[in-house]
């Protein structure tokens, strides 16, 4: 029904999967307004390309792939804008803000963990894109290694390796943030 462009089926899909898409995007972008914008884009892409979905993978895997790709595209665009703003600021023409978004705290974090989660998300933002994706899918979305591997089109051992390196990098970043101890 969804493939036939049925409006009710599309509404059902949005209602069923909006939390999954938004939560993943929010974990990667760490900015609620941008996450909302990218979530809308994801569903627009789904609406446009649902006929290309051949059912070889689960609908959720296909949806996660579109979500991750859209979030990464947004992050790259944001980095390009930031670089451009930096170059323009050298010429004394800085219209775009150079500052990073304010500290992010995921709304689903337990109250007693808010400060720790804030520090962790700051470190996650510095991870390379593939480690950030694997970490978000596993730790924020709660996907298994196998599910994360299906979404990223790789093997379980590659996901294990990415997560191991992500954890090492996070530890290093956190240690450097507090050279004199916490």
């Amino acid at each position: 029904m969804l493939k036939e462009g049925d409006g009710r089926a599309f509404r059902q899909l949005v209602e069923d999967r909006q939390t999954m898409v938004y939560n993943t995007v929010l974990g990667m972008l760490q900015q609620p307004e941008d996450a909302e914008d990218v979530t809308q884009e994801v569903f627009l892409k789904v609406y446009e390309s649902i006929r290309q979905f051949r059912g070889e993978s689960a609908l959720s895997t296909w949806l996660y792939r579109i979500t991750v790709t859209s979030a990464l595209e947004f992050l790259r665009k944001r980095r390009r804008k930031k670089r451009f703003a930096f170059v323009m600021s050298l010429f004394g023409d800085a219209n775009e803000p150079l500052t990073d978004p304010p500290d992010f705290v995921h709304p689903g974090v337990k109250l007693d963990q808010r400060e720790n989660a804030r520090l962790l998300f700051q470190a996650v933002a510095q991870l390379p894109d593939n480690q950030k994706t694997a970490y978000t899918l596993h730790k924020v979305e709660g996907l298994s290694y196998q599910e994360a591997a299906d979404v990223m089109g790789t093997t379980v051992s590659a996901i294990e390796s990415l997560l191991h390196r992500a954890r090492l990098n996070l530890r290093k970043t956190l240690e450097n943030s507090f050279p004199d101890g916490l």
Binding site: Q18, N23, Q40, Y47, Q113, L120, R171
Partner: peptide, 23 residues
């Protein structure tokens, strides 16, 4: 270690209501 474990038991975040209407 405590910081790294701070996302354990994380509840998923939902978008603002009426997402379908905005889309």
């Amino acid at each position: 270690d405590d910081i790294l474990d701070s996302l354990n038991g994380l509840a998923p975040a939902s978008p603002a209501p009426f997402l379908h209407t905005r889309i």
